[in-house]
Nucleic acid binder design. Structure first.
Lengths: 311, 311
DNA sequence: ATTATGTATTGCATTTATTGCAATACATAA
DNA sequence: TTATGTATTGCAATAAATGCAATACATAAT
C-alpha cells in the first residue's frame, strides 16, 4: 500500500523531474529513491515516470497520481491542523518580495517544498522591480526578499546566497535604428549604439562598472525599472542591454534578441534576504533552512545552457 | 508518515472496536496490530483510541482520523479505477436480499470490508421478510440472500453459515387482554394465551415444531410477515411471540417485552446463500471468501448478552 | 576523439524494522 | 474459583530498507 511519505516524495520528483536532486531534498540516497519509485510503480501496477540515463519524465499516469498525492497530503495537513491545531508546527503568514523572474525560477520550488514540509504556512508573494527589493525589507509587511546583493551589504541584513547570475549583453535581432554592431564587436563600437539600462539598483551599478572598465561611454536610450522590461525594450529594437542571463532566458522576447557575449567578472549575487532583527522568527528560520537545502538545485540548472546564438 | 494500509486497518478497527478481531480481519497478529496503532498514534501525536483490558473505544480524534482515512481510501480507489480501470480488480454490481435485522447486524461489516478490499464493487441491498429470502434467489436480479436454512436445503443452493441464532419466547410487559402467564410458566398455560406467529418461512416451521414438541395448541392471534413486525405486535400487547434473540435485541420495542425463556434445541441457522449455478462468479466467490473471514466475528457478539430479565 | 560531468540503476553488506509466538496482566462472566 | 475474552510486552527470527561503491550510459566541454 501507498505510504504518504512516498506520495510526498513523488510530488518533489514531479517538481524537479530529477531523481538525484529529489533524493537530496528528501534526505535519502538516489538508490533509495530509485527503489522507492519501483515500489510505488509496482503497487500501482503503472509506469509513473520514465527514467533513463538522461533523467526523469513524468507520464500522464504519473500526473494522475500526482493529483491524488496532492489531494491526500492536503487532507492530511488539514487533519493535523484539526487534531492539534498547529501547535508545534510551522504556521502563520509570510510575505515575500521578488522580481517576476525570481518568482518563476525560485518560487515554485520553494512553495512546493513549503507545502510539503510546512503545509500550514501561508505565503504571500509580491513581485516588482528587483532594484527595490532590499528597500522593501523596511516595509514591516515584507518578511523576506529575493535580491541582488550590493557591494556593501547593509549590516542589518541577513542573507543566503541563491545563485550567482552571469550577466549577458543583448542586442536586438532587428534594430529599430541604423546602429551598427558587427560580429567582431569592438568596444569602441559600443560607444556609438544606444543602450537601455536599469534605472537603479545593483544591476545599474554593475552595468556602470562594466562601462567604466571597458572604457565605454555609451549613448543611453532609456532608463528602465524592472529587468524584464529591459529585455522587452531590447527585443523591440531600441538598443543594447545588459541583464542577468536568467532574465533573458525567461523573457518572452528571447527570440527577438541575440546574446553578444557574457560579461566576465561581473558579480550579481542573488540572495534570500531578511532583516537580522527578524532572524529569530521561527517561520523565517524555517525558510532559510528549507531554501538552503533547495539552493544547490538552483545553480546547475541555470549555468547550463550553452551554445549561444552569437551573431 | 501514514501508510494507507494502516488507515484501512484503522477503519476496520472503527467498525469492530475490537483489536483481536480486527487483527484477524487484517491477517496479522494482535501484537502487530497493537504496535501498528502505537505507531499511528505516535506519528499523529494523538490518542486515536482508548485501549485497555476491556477493549477498544475510538476517541473523537480517532473519529476525525477515520473520516480522513475514508476520504483518502476513496480517492485511492478512484485513482486505481482511473489508472487501469478495474482490470483485474473485483468490480461490477451485486444485489443482496436480507431481513432488516440481518441488514443491521451483518451488512455494515460486510459493506465496510467490501469497501476496503474491493472498493469498485457496487452493492445494492433489498430488505424484506426473511421468509421470502430463499425464494428471492429465483429472481435473476438477486445474487445473494441472507436466510435461515430450511431443514432440507435445496440442492441448487450454495451457502455459508453465518450464525446459529437462539430463539426466544417473548411476552408483552403490558398485555392488551387479560391473558395469564405466571413466573413459573407451565406449558399448559401456553395453550390459553394468544400467540403471534410468522406467516411462513423457517421461523414458522421452527415455531410449529416447538409447539408440537411441547404439546401446545396455542391460540393464534395473528400471522405476520417479517420478523421485526412480530416483536412490534408482541410489544403492543397482542400476545406472545417467538423470534430469534437478535431480532428482539435490535427491536425498538425491546423494552416493551420480556424474554420468558430461550428455546432449546431450536435450529435457526442463518446463512449467506446463492444459487450454485452462480458459484463461479468472481464477485460471488469474493463475497463468500470475505464473509467467511468475517463470520467468526459475528458469533460471539450475539450469544453474549446474558442475565435475562426473566419475569 | 577524449575527458568530464550528470544521470539512474544494481550488487552487496549492514543496519533497521516488522512479525508472530508465548507469556503476562487484567476484566468479566460462568 | 475457573474459564473466557481483552490488550500488551519480551524475545528471537525474519524481512525490509538503506547507503556505499561500482556500473552504464548520455551529453557537453575541451
Amino acid at each position: 500500500m501507498i505510504d504518504l511519505k512516498d506520495a510526498a516524495t513523488f510530488l518533489r520528483l514531479c517538481e524537479t523531474e530529477n531523481l538525484t536532486r529529489t533524493a537530496s531534498l528528501c534526505g535519502v540516497s538516489p538508490s533509495t529513491l530509485s527503489r522507492t519509485l519501483n515500489k510505488l510503480e509496482s503497487t500501482l501496477q503503472t509506469n509513473l515516470c520514465i527514467r533513463d540515463k538522461k533523467g526523469v519524465s513524468i507520464t500522464p499516469y504519473g500526473r494522475k497520481f500526482e493529483k491524488f498525492a496532492r489531494n491526500c497530503l492536503n487532507e492530511y495537513a488539514a487533519l493535523e491542523q484539526e487534531l492539534h491545531h498547529g501547535a508545534e508546527s510551522i504556521s502563520g503568514k509570510l510575505k515575500i518580495y521578488c522580481s517576476v523572474t525570481a518568482s518563476y525560477l525560485f518560487i515554485p520550488r520553494i512553495l512546493n517544498e513549503i507545502h510539503l514540509s510546512a503545509p500550514h504556512l501561508e505565503v504571500k508573494l509580491e513581485t516588482g522591480d528587483p532594484a527595490d527589493a532590499l528597500d522593501k525589507l523596511e516595509d514591516p509587511q515584507i518578511d523576506l526578499v529575493i535580491s541582488a546583493l550590493p557591494q556593501d551589504i547593509p549590516s542589518n541584513i541577513k542573507f543566503l546566497d541563491l545563485i550567482n547570475l552571469p550577466l549577458v549583453l543583448l542586442a536586438p535581432k532587428q534594430p529599430r535604428f541604423q546602429f551598427n554592431f558587427s560580429t567582431d564587436l569592438k568596444n569602441s563600437d559600443l560607444s556609438k549604439v544606444p543602450f537601455i539600462i536599469p534605472e537603479k539598483g545593483q544591476l545599474r551599478y554593475e552595468v556602470e562598472k562594466w562601462f567604466s572598465a571597458m572604457d565605454i561611454h555609451p549613448e543611453i536610450y532609456a532608463e528602465i525599472a524592472g529587468h524584464e522590461a529591459i529585455v522587452s525594450m531590447a527585443g523591440l529594437g531600441f538598443g543594447l542591454a545588459i541583464v542577468p542571463r536568467l532574465v533573458y532566458e525567461i523573457s518572452p522576447f528571447k527570440n527577438d534578441v541575440n546574446v553578444l557575449r557574457e560579461l566576465q567578472w561581473s558579480n550579481f549575487r542573488v540572495a534570500l534576504c531578511s532583516k537580522k532583527i527578524n532572524a529569530q522568527d521561527k517561520k523565517i528560520q524555517f525558510i532559510y533552512d528549507l531554501v538552503s537545502r533547495l539552493a544547490p538545485s538552483f545553480t546547475p540548472d541555470l549555468t547550463r545552457r550553452r551554445n549561444e546564438n552569437i551573431i
